[in-house]
């Protein structure tokens, strides 16, 4: 038994990292039907979502804006740490990652955002789906979750989600200001 009260520190660390990776994977998902799956890991009662220091009243409003207003993304995890807060049944995650955006002129669903597609023109899988990635932005993410997430229970566990971009490349088309 570890100092932090973890019965199995090893598996808990691995579960913690896998949970964070799952969150990032959801952020990159381009399938609208997966939205409810992502939403299911946010606590339905008063979850706090802050993106770039902008608060969202509900996780749903953030996720809908993310899904509809942002081009395809790719997150890469660079650092994870977490603390179990004694007596609170909660865990604080401190995460760093980087994110890049599809700058190939397509919206998240892979449709050309500026040119009307010629329906007669055959679209092979390559030119329809391959993103043209820009440079990476840096991201700092803090989450407060319920402790049961470390027992592989991720249903409704996210209590606070604080996602902020911390550095930006000069050669990206993406405007964050």
């Amino acid at each position: 038994i570890s100092n932090s009260g973890n019965v199995s520190g090893s598996s808990r660390s691995q579960i913690a990292e896998l949970f964070v990776k799952r969150v990032l994977t959801h952020l990159d998902d381009t399938d609208p039907s997966k939205l409810n799956e992502f939403l299911s890991i946010f606590n339905p009662n008063g979850c706090k979502v802050v993106i770039n220091a902008t608060p969202f009243a509900q996780p749903t409003s953030f996720l809908e804006q993310w899904e509809t207003g942002v081009t395809q993304t790719q997150h890469a995890l660079t650092a994870v740490d977490y603390h179990v807060i004694p007596g609170s049944n909660t865990v604080v995650f401190n995460v760093n990652c980087k994110v890049r955006f599809d700058e190939g002129g397509r919206d998240r669903a892979g449709q050309d955002a500026s040119i009307q597609q010629n329906p007669q023109q055959p679209r092979n899988a390559l030119n329809r789906t391959r993103p043209l990635w820009g440079s990476y932005f840096g991201v700092s993410l803090q989450m407060v979750t319920e402790e049961r997430v470390l027992n592989k229970d991720s249903n409704g566990v996210i209590l606070t989600f604080n996602y902020n971009m911390v550095y930006k490349p000069d050669d990206s088309l993406m405007n964050i200001q």
Binding site: N52, A53, Q65, T71, D107, A113, N175
Partner: peptide, 12 residues
Amino acid sequence: IYSIPMKIQPFF
């Protein structure tokens, strides 16, 4: 499409 809906702010 090249604009984040949640513009960055320094403080919350």
